[in-house]
Computed example of a mutant assay.
Amino acid sequence: MKWSVLLVLLVLLGPHFSGVAASGWTTYHKSDQLLIEHRESENALLQVHATTQVRSSIGAFLHLLEDTNNISAWVANSERAIVLATPSSNTHLVHIYFDAIWPVSPRDMITQSSWTQAPQSKVLTLHIEDMGQHFSPEPGYVRVEQVQGHWELTPLEGGVLLIDYTGQADPAGKLPHFITDKVTLRSLLSTFSDLQQILSGYQKPYPGVLEY
């Protein structure tokens, strides 16, 4: 899956927030290689932003996203993912399931992701949109709503890849947002922390993708 499974990310949790930036973002985690921030969107949802640098090709990231059988190895709290359709070589419709983490009930989401690459800069952008409203509810799961995501992969010198992600989603259900927001941030930190190690196993060319 991947989330192109894509999707990155939904519901997660961690320590209390701190440090409001001039941009309106509040820093949740900051280290030499990883920055995670959050803020409230215009529709009062948690909006998250994460950026990290890893030694990887661009194609490796796409291969990882499409490896739905291995999603639980890097996407925190993910259970499984199913590719429902592939309208084109760069577009995927995916159904993702997330395990329950008390007090949060199991969630699922259906998203469509599509990527494009700028031929000169080689920057690859991946856009994710919510498609859950077009499918019947899944028994035993709460359907995540208003899913939006944007990935930007920028190749740097020395084989380094800058990965930038911004996204938001409504976890739905009856839990207060201060609980689901925390769960989302914790899961996001876990997911991005695992990226560097897992990408090492996907270093092979991806059809149609320009590298460094």
Rank of each mutant, 00 (worst) to 15 (best):
R143C: 01
W115M: 06
W25E: 09
H38E: 12
L62F: 15
D164L: 01
A76N: 11
Q133K: 13
A22V: 09
D194K: 15
M1N: 11
T125S: 13
P176L: 05
N69R: 07
I96L: 10
D99S: 10
V142M: 10
L45I: 10
T27I: 14
M1Y: 11
D170V: 00
Q53S: 08
L35I: 09
I110W: 00
V183K: 10
K2R: 07
W151N: 02
P205D: 13
E152T: 15
E138G: 00
T116D: 12
G132E: 03
L65C: 14
E145C: 00
I128E: 06
G159P: 00
A22N: 09
L45A: 01
L189Q: 12
L6G: 03
A73I: 07
A73V: 09
R39Q: 15
L6H: 07
E138N: 06
R39G: 08
L13A: 10
L84K: 04
Q53K: 12
S200P: 00
L34D: 06
E145Y: 04
N77S: 11
R39A: 11
A169G: 09
E66N: 15
Q117S: 05
K174G: 11
L126F: 12
L64S: 00
L195C: 06
E40S: 06
Q197N: 12
S31N: 07
A44C: 05
V75K: 05
D194I: 06
E79R: 10
D99G: 06
N70I: 03
M109P: 01
Y97L: 13
K174V: 11
L126H: 13
A44L: 12
T166Q: 15
G14P: 14
G24D: 09
R107K: 12
L185M: 09
T116M: 05
D181P: 01
S88G: 07
L195T: 04
F192I: 06
E138Q: 15
P15A: 09
T86S: 14
T111F: 03
K204F: 07
D67N: 14
G149H: 05
M1G: 14
S200E: 14
V104E: 03
E79P: 02
A169Y: 04
L6Y: 12
L210A: 13
L84H: 01
V104R: 10
P139S: 11
N43R: 14
H29P: 03
V209K: 05
L153H: 10
L124W: 06
S72Y: 07
D181E: 07
T191H: 02
W151G: 01
S190P: 00
R186T: 05
K174T: 13
L153T: 04
Q203G: 06
A118C: 09
G140D: 12
K2E: 02
S57L: 15
S113K: 01
S105C: 04
F17W: 11
H38K: 08
F178I: 09
S113A: 12
L195R: 02
D108C: 08
M109Y: 01
G201Y: 13
L199E: 01
T116E: 12
T51R: 14
T166Y: 02
D130Y: 04
T116V: 12
T86E: 12
V94G: 07
Y212W: 14
D194A: 15
H95W: 00
Q196G: 06
E42K: 15
L64T: 03
Q197A: 11
G59N: 10
H16F: 11
Y28T: 00
L13D: 14
I36Y: 05
G19F: 04
W115T: 03
